[in-house]
């Protein structure tokens, strides 16, 4: 099935099997997202891409495009909810942008800029989270994990391994590593794995590369995440 859907008044085509976000991206329309990445199985958990489809809230990254849908993406109400959801992610973990080596390249930060998020709004949880620096080349800082599941999917779908999983329930979710000790050094991850590079925040980092590009010269220091995402993702979305 192919046809057209209408996003914020603009008619755009879609192809059989495309989700709303895929059709939107192909047409050059940005829908904020964090857990979605072209080429990966859609997950639908961060809820930043929530759009109104025929009056009902749906995740654009999982909801299939269908002929004649009326989609609202850019409304004050949706943008406000997205800002609040982003703030939830900020207070859930421990995100200290000024001292984080991912600052400027961090998608969580990029989305926050895009949504004009000026404070954290909610009280912090101050969760106790560990750092796993056991691996010689890769670091996990659990303080910055947002449970987007991208590293889990990357390891399974791209690397053919099963290095990561999300365990726990509710606010006690945690990223776990598939190794006898639970530490990254005892897993079969390699520095070249997609799973080591896919993290949208600074939770999984390659060691000794953090400051190669000085702060101030990084991606979101100069570009809106909307432009960056569309430039990177348009090719995949087709």
């Amino acid at each position: 099935m192919t046809g057209t859907i209408n996003i914020d008044g603009q008619n755009i085509p879609f192809e059989e099997g495309q989700t709303i976000i895929e059709a939107a991206t192909a047409a050059g329309i940005y829908i904020p997202h964090l857990c979605h990445k072209p080429g990966y199985t859609p997950h639908g958990s961060c809820k930043l891409c929530t759009v109104k489809v025929n009056g009902r809230n749906c995740s654009a990254c999982t909801f299939p495009a269908a002929d004649g849908q009326t989609v609202i993406n850019n409304s004050d109400e949706l943008q406000q909810d997205r800002r609040r959801i982003t703030q939830m992610l900020f207070v859930e973990g421990n995100h200290m942008c000024p001292s984080c080596e991912k600052s400027g390249n961090c998608q969580l930060q990029g989305v926050a800029y895009h949504l004009n998020m000026l404070d954290n709004h909610f009280p912090h949880f101050f969760a106790h989270r560990e750092v796993d620096a056991s691996h010689p080349d890769i670091l996990i800082d659990h303080n910055r994990c947002i449970f987007c599941n991208l590293c889990v999917r990357a390891s399974k779908e791209k690397d053919g391994k099963n290095v990561f999983a999300i365990a726990g329930r509710g606010i006690n979710k945690r990223l776990i590593v598939n190794s006898p000790s639970g530490q990254l050094k005892d897993s079969d991850i390699a520095p070249g794995d997609c799973a080591a590079h896919v993290c949208p925040t600074g939770a999984i980092l390659i060691k000794r590369t953090g400051y190669q590009v000085p702060i101030g010269q990084r991606i979101y220091d100069h570009h809106q995440i909307s432009e960056v995402a569309l430039a990177e993702e348009t090719g995949h979305g087709e």
Binding site: K47, I85, M88, V91, E92, F125, G170, N172, K173
Partner: peptide
């Protein structure tokens, strides 16, 4: 609800605990 939230999506995982607090 905060205790039983599965924690998959942000609004419920964080939101039910924020509501509780």
């Amino acid at each position: 609800f905060a205790h039983e939230s599965c924690g998959f999506c942000t609004p419920c995982r964080v939101g039910t605990s924020l509501l509780k607090n």
